[in-house]
Design a protein around this nucleic acid. Structure first.
Lengths: 250, 250
DNA sequence: GCGCCTGATCCTGTATACAAGAATTCACGC
DNA sequence: GCGTGAATTCTTGTATACAGGATCAGGCGC
């Protein structure tokens, strides 16, 4: 499917992870050389990876300027949520139609992991697991295309959360996931869809409703998060920015 | 959005069109040099175009072998239709919610074009217009992501038709499109969705149900179509089956 | 004659080179 | 002091080179 030459794929995966875990805030510049240096590959491959991420909506790569992590507008964000709701409803229908007992077990295991991470205060892990819960569901739908589209929108939702939401808030309440599992077990599609809708409504609310609060402040919000991200002293992903710290795209 | 450097984009567009108009039957090899020569660009750009088309599901590009036009399995085809139904339902809802009088006028104009093409016996044009009808609807939904996904799915449906359907059949009956427009005008979402569902059911039936007829024969069906396509004067390809005539991908 | 090994050939994977477009800096004139 | 424009630097767009798999064509052994 998305399996390029494995090397490009690795870069994609790493960047994607970094973006959705909010290690690379929206608007961060991603110069091809620098990224390539980090991953030990030439611009050719970086370019392929960035192109792919762009098609997933995680990266903005305007014609002749440096790619950046995407900074969707509020409208775009709403569109993403709208599509997500549509897809997840279908996922619920399909998962219920193909329900097997082991699904329940697996999902419950997953929720337990989420809870553990949340208790341990591992924000990054929490965010990742919250997304993966939905991905698991997508896989259980048995429809690979649906799974792919769902994966894309879920990633983008994480990005949106990073942009418009409170920094480092995990987007999904564990209890809501638990309710979803219970609803699925009930095998009543309409009921389960209602639960899922409610959950996604909450997620969107958490992601976007803060928005009203600091609509024009977002530059400041972003910068403060930059600082926070940069001071982690993490030697891993974030390339050092030689002079200028972080310039948000525009 | 998908606007790379415009040159890559052109190649994408051209290839996409060729594929969905069934000028390049599923399984056709697409060596980078050759394609590049055709478009007057180097492998670098062709490669980018092919990667993009792969992510759209129109091209298969396994790790170290020559890319080919995609040859989705029957299961994949069904998945595509399933997703398409989901997306189009949402499109109908949104279009009705944002309905404006000029939508009706535009759609009707489009349907008239379709009818003209159909009467003129222009198969290629018919196929293209049939797809574009759905794309227009996608645009009217006002949701760009939905529009993008719909575009991908519609393209893939054309490809599927080329693979499993009767050769050169346009996939949409014009009258069905007309019914859809009428239903939208009625602004009753449930009713319009029913019409759309019915339409897509017909499309899928036309695309896949021939399939039941010769389910295990599909190799033969494919070969006969190859022959038709490659019909440059050797009418006997079907008769002889040396070992493996047309090696499609696998 | 049939199947397997071996070299020749065709492609793809990846890095690199070079030209040209942005972004930035610096200096000049008002 | 500040705006404006030219020089400089940073980056991207694209072609090309080269290495290594994959595929194909014979040739050898059975």
């Amino acid at each position: 499917m998305s399996k390029k030459s494995s090397r490009v794929d690795m870069a994609c995966k790493a960047l994607r992870q970094a973006i959705i875990e909010q290690a690379l805030p929206p608007g961060t510049k991603l110069p091809e050389d620098e990224v390539g240096a980090q991953f030990g590959m030439s611009r050719t491959l970086v370019r392929a990876a960035l192109a792919h991420l762009q098609s997933e909506g995680l990266v903005d790569a305007p014609p002749r300027r440096t790619a950046t992590t995407a900074k969707p507008t509020l409208d775009e964000a709403k569109e993403v949520f709208e599509v997500r709701r549509t897809l997840e409803r279908e996922v619920v229908r399909l998962v219920i139609a193909r329900w097997r007992p082991e699904f329940g077990a697996e999902l419950e295991g997953h929720v337990r992991e989420e809870e553990a991470a949340r208790k341990a205060g591992e924000a990054r892990v929490s965010i990742r697991l919250a997304g993966e819960f939905h991905i698991r569901l997508g896989e259980m739908s048995g429809n690979r295309l649906l799974r792919r589209y769902l994966g894309e929108v879920v990633s983008r939702c994480s990005l949106i959360l990073a942009l418009y939401g409170r920094p480092h808030s995990a987007d999904c309440a564990v209890s809501e996931h638990r309710e979803i599992v219970a609803a699925l077990r009930g095998r009543n599609a309409e009921a389960a869809i209602a639960v899922m809708d409610h959950h996604l409504g909450s997620v969107e609310h958490r992601a976007l409703l803060d928005q009203g609060r600091d609509a024009q402040f977002d530059l400041g919000a972003v910068l403060s998060r930059y600082a926070e991200a940069a001071d982690a002293g993490s030697p891993s992903k974030v390339a050092r920015l030689p002079k200028r710290k972080a310039r948000a795209t525009k």
